[in-house]
Design a protein around this nucleic acid. Structure first.
Lengths: 196, 196
DNA sequence: ACTTGACAAGACTTGTGTTCGTGTCAACTT
DNA sequence: AAGTTGACACGAACACAAGTCTTGTCAAGT
């Protein structure tokens, strides 16, 4: 007797997650080019064929990593923003801090934001192509927050403000001239000024 | 009878300028890697040895190109800013327009601003290393303008504002989502808001 | 539903020899 | 005296052939 469809879907999702996670780890310390489908399969403990069944090809697996990485990242930004009620300064401060430390810690996220070439080898083109998508997603989250907490402000102002803050954060990821804490302070103050 | 030292220095400066100009042109359409010292010399009509006498080595010539390019660029920004008296909006609008169209027209300037890898080959590392210098120079010019025309504003506010505007312009060079004119409008309005 | 082993096709590596460009020198020219 | 010319060592880039590895697909096995 096979399990219920629910259960099957769940197990399958777990499998996909494990594969994506393993591939991600390998990509981080080895570079995507040097990641072999066979290595990923071995690390997860499945056969190489299963990878092809699940993701059709290596490019598909790369896309899946990019998707998950960006989703996680944007989720983190959203959580940071919404953890501070209507306090714009605190919300922006938390979000900026999150982005900056995340970019420092996770090379994949950093490569999304900077569209950087890989230091040692070609990093995922799937990620680096997505800089504008990441920006658009960040702007969307910021607007979401502003609409929830600042009903008075004009939509145009919110859009301009959100995009500018997002661009400034990315700029500080690419070219950091001050410690994270100080940058977060500055940008949070800046954001507060907009919303008057 | 040799010419006066004045004359000699002038002639020498002209020579250096011609060499830098020729090297720059070659670098633009061929990539710095593919520029041969012999080609530069031939184009200017001097011997290869003269290049080495003037710039010691290829890296020295690269540095010289970078210097001149950045000087010209910053000079253009300054001119655009100061051509509009104390009208902050007009000044920023002009400067942003200048930077954006310059970046679109001159691949070398664009590579300074974006620290981009060369599309076809390795572009001058001398230029790409200078992104933070270019930013610092731009901030300095903006502060210069603010000090001349907005004596009332606090120095800290000016610094933060100038750096943010500069970063936003660079961001729009790297990732343009709107036409130049519209971006200039948006950033000019943004700048005006700061200075209240 | 997943694994295993086999396979073609082409991408990537390795070793080799050669060409090419830089950087330096000293002798020559004006 | 300032620039040119030709020569040269050295190492970096290129070319290419032989071999190896990886991807992607298949069919048969558990």
């Amino acid at each position: 007797m096979a399990g219920s469809p629910r259960y099957r879907d769940h197990a399958r999702q777990q499998l996909r997650d494990a594969i994506i996670g393993a591939a991600r780890d390998l990509a981080i310390d080895r570079g995507w080019d040097a990641v072999r489908m066979a290595d990923v399969a071995a690390r997860v403990g499945v056969s190489r064929q299963t990878l092809y069944n699940e993701f059709t090809n290596k490019a598909g697996l790369g896309e899946a990593i990019a998707h998950r990485e960006i989703d996680r990242f944007i989720g983190g930004v959203r959580d940071a923003l919404f953890a501070h009620g209507a306090d714009a300064r605190a919300a922006v401060h938390a979000a900026v801090t999150f982005v900056l430390s995340q970019a420092a810690a996770d090379p994949l996220i950093k490569s999304v934001l900077t569209s950087a070439r890989g230091g040692s080898d070609t990093l995922l083109p799937y990620l680096t192509t997505r800089a504008d998508l990441a920006l658009a997603a960040a702007v969307a989250v910021l607007r979401e927050w502003a609409e929830a907490h600042l009903p008075g402000t004009s939509p145009d102002d919110v859009t301009v403000g959100a995009e500018s803050i997002a661009r400034l954060v990315v700029s500080h990821v690419v070219l950091p001239l001050a410690p994270v804490e100080q940058t977060a302070d500055t940008l949070a103050d800046l954001a507060r000024r907009f919303l008057d």
